[in-house]
């Protein structure tokens, strides 16, 4: 049984590590430090922790100002409020000015669970991906989250890093190396390809297991960077396998599925099925129940693969 760690906890850990090495690193938060796990940084470096109060727009506006005075700013809130409420501040004050702000947003997707639709962000990847120059990262597990956040810290410019609330299995060995914009083929396969983002990697791997029993060989790709997307990995999957299924805890409109479709249409037309939220809002419930109801289980992914046969 794999260790279970939420990627928001991975963020918490790596943020303190980064803070130890670089005095210019600032952590910002909007009254959710216990939830976004920036409280560890606050405890260690209280002078470099800025609480904006319940004011995400101002948090990100201030983040832009701090970044333009030489700070590397990690600003954190829930995906819903960071990307949704503060969209235009991110667009105009952060992205348009190439401010060195890393928006580390937690509580992605239906996996938020009991808080319900108002807190379940299923549009954030779409709206962040559309902003020129924004890098969008959605790590699958603890190891990839820590390494990708570290990689992001080393690059100047705006990032949107999508983190999960719930504990997710650790998939990668500690020594795995990650590169922003380069997908990881987690499982080799020759018949079909499943491309996942974020914590749906676990579901993609489970689907591959189900299909293996049926004699279907599935390649599983972890598309941890949704923008810039790894076009080569997608084209190879299109050419080398007979069809692609994407799976994301996000709307099928504008997210990973759309990003993959854009590459396929332009470079390597192939059959595609997208598994995700189908143009609707979520509701309260346990994450597993929500995944069942909204069609995000391994069985759903396996069915999508079979439909390509």
């Amino acid at each position: 049984m794999a260790d279970m760690i939420a990627t928001r906890d991975s963020f918490s850990k790596v943020l303190v590590e980064l803070g130890e090495k670089d005095n210019n690193i600032i952590a910002m938060n909007a009254d959710l430090s216990a939830s976004t796990k920036t409280d560890a940084f606050e405890k260690r470096f209280p002078e470099r922790f800025i609480n904006a109060g319940i004011a995400e727009c101002n948090m990100l506006g201030m983040a832009a100002g701090m970044a333009h005075c030489g700070k590397t700013v990690f600003a954190s809130s829930f995906c819903m409020f960071a990307s949704g409420r503060a969209f235009e501040i991110i667009r105009n004050s952060i992205a348009h000015t190439h401010a060195n702000v890393k928006i580390c947003a937690s509580h992605a997707g239906l996996a938020v669970g009991e808080d319900g639709a108002t807190h379940q962000s299923v549009e954030d990847v779409a709206i962040m991906r559309d902003i020129p120059g924004m890098t969008v990262i959605s790590p699958a597990d603890d190891v990839s989250a820590r390494k990708l956040i570290k990689a992001a810290a080393a690059v100047k410019g705006p990032f949107y890093i999508r983190l999960g609330r719930a504990a997710a299995p650790v998939v990668y060995p500690e020594d795995t190396e990650f590169e922003i914009g380069k997908a990881v083929t987690v499982l080799e396969g020759s018949d079909f390809t499943v491309i996942s983002s974020g914590c749906m990697l676990e579901t993609a791997l489970a689907a591959a297991d189900i299909l293996k029993e049926e004699g279907i060989s599935v390649r599983v790709i972890d598309m941890h960077t949704i923008k810039p997307i790894d076009e080569d990995a997608i084209v190879r999957a299109a050419v080398e396998t007979k069809g692609i299924v994407t799976v994301e805890d996000h709307s099928v409109i504008g997210g990973l599925g759309s990003a993959v479709a854009e590459v396929l249409c332009a470079k390597a037309p192939a059959r595609l099925r997208t598994v995700g939220i189908r143009d609707c809002f979520g509701e309260s419930g346990k994450p597993a129940q929500l995944y069942e109801k909204y069609g995000l289980t391994a069985a759903d992914v396996a069915a999508a693969v079979r439909s390509l046969k």
Binding site: I26, N58, M62, A64, G65, M66, H68, C69, I89, N92
Partner: peptide, 14 residues
């Protein structure tokens, strides 16, 4: 509204 917000961030950094 965004300018004053960034200005507060700059003052905070200073």
């Amino acid at each position: 509204g965004q300018g004053i917000s960034a200005a507060v961030g700059m003052a905070l950094a200073g």
